[in-house]
Nucleic acid binder design. Structure first.
Lengths: 181, 181
DNA sequence: AAAAAAAGTTAGGAGTACCTAACTTAAATG
DNA sequence: CATTTAAGTTAGGTACTCCTAACTTTTTTT
């Protein structure tokens, strides 16, 4: 187990990197921009479940770091740099939520909440691998929707003996033949 | 996308819950206890990649919250309550690392680092589901090791066409028959 | 256009998680 | 057993993330 210091070592100088919290702000601003062209502090506060005074501070920080365009009493847009990060985080969110929801079959609300936390913990390469994995499950004739369904049954019963594996394999084989014709 | 406030709302009173950082401390103490019966501040600092002054503060906090037994200048052990949490986190870590390493085939070091961050983001039920999922992959005759190997090939080539799906299905079928005899 | 309401900012405060430097205690060694 | 060394603590500091209360600016309504 290798732990990474939660403040990246350097604490005396202002951090130029994005904290998880600031990543969330970018994600929220991205969402609002998509919906309303621009983001307003009030809506950011609501989505972040935070008081508006807190938003003001976060926006100042994000301006300083070059992720947003913003002046006091005005609306917010993402800079090129900010939009790039926001898209990346949103993509991570979507992939993770898809995995939790469709593969692990966790209910929608919890999947979303969990994805919201996980999105800050996996790098781009790992999330890409997860995406490929989901695609592979979807497209490989040995797996697919019915296999995921079997996983659900396995979860419920806790053993494979209750499942007729031979029949399942046969069904899988036949389905592939029919799909090819 | 539903964001959960990073300070749980209540900020005026001292938080009784565990932060991610404190969870890491418990995990590290658990590891050291297993290895040396007790944990010493120096070793905790090393494993946490933190200065020893920082450890002192964290230990005070953990005592106050009832997770460890500790008095200044003495060694550390987990209380019953602390050990329970530590075991839970360690288990999450192991399941996540196993998934990243064996299923997604992420290299050991990155898998470990990533698991170290993810372990704080998934609740017990979700991790249990992930564990069941890994077990299902391992034990279902339609998946298993060779299927994971195929996933690796898919990752490298980016398409299924290059794979002979029919041959793969047949091999899978035959393997099952032989295993049963 | 003035008043009221809504939105946003500033100031000050708390808790967390780090840091360095100086100091104290405990352990190891001559 | 006194001294040196290692380990641990305290004090003081920075940054982050959130809060409330008071104030300012902008927008809406009359």
């Amino acid at each position: 187990m290798v732990i990474t210091n939660r403040q990246g070592g350097n604490v005396t100088a202002k951090n130029t990197e994005l904290s998880e919290s600031l990543e969330d702000y970018l994600e929220v601003i991205w969402d609002l921009e998509k919906a309303n062209k621009v983001a307003r502090a009030k809506d950011i506060a609501e989505k972040m479940r935070v008081q508006s005074a807190t938003v003001t501070g976060a926006l100042r920080n994000l301006v300083e770091k070059g992720f947003i365009n913003y002046e006091p009493y005005s609306f917010v847009t993402l800079t090129h740099k900010g939009a790039k990060i926001a898209r990346e985080i949103a993509r991570k969110h979507d992939v993770l939520k898809d995995f939790l929801l469709r593969v692990l079959q966790i209910d929608a609300e919890k999947a979303d909440e969990t994805a919201c936390r996980m999105e800050h913990t996996m790098d781009k390469i790992s999330v890409n691998k997860l995406l490929k994995f989901i695609q592979f499950i979807d497209n490989c004739p040995r797996t697919g929707e019915d296999w995921v369904q079997s996983f659900m049954n396995y979860c419920a019963t806790d053993n494979l003996d209750s499942v007729d594996c031979k029949a399942c394999l046969n069904a899988c084989f036949n389905q592939y033949k029919h799909q090819k014709n």
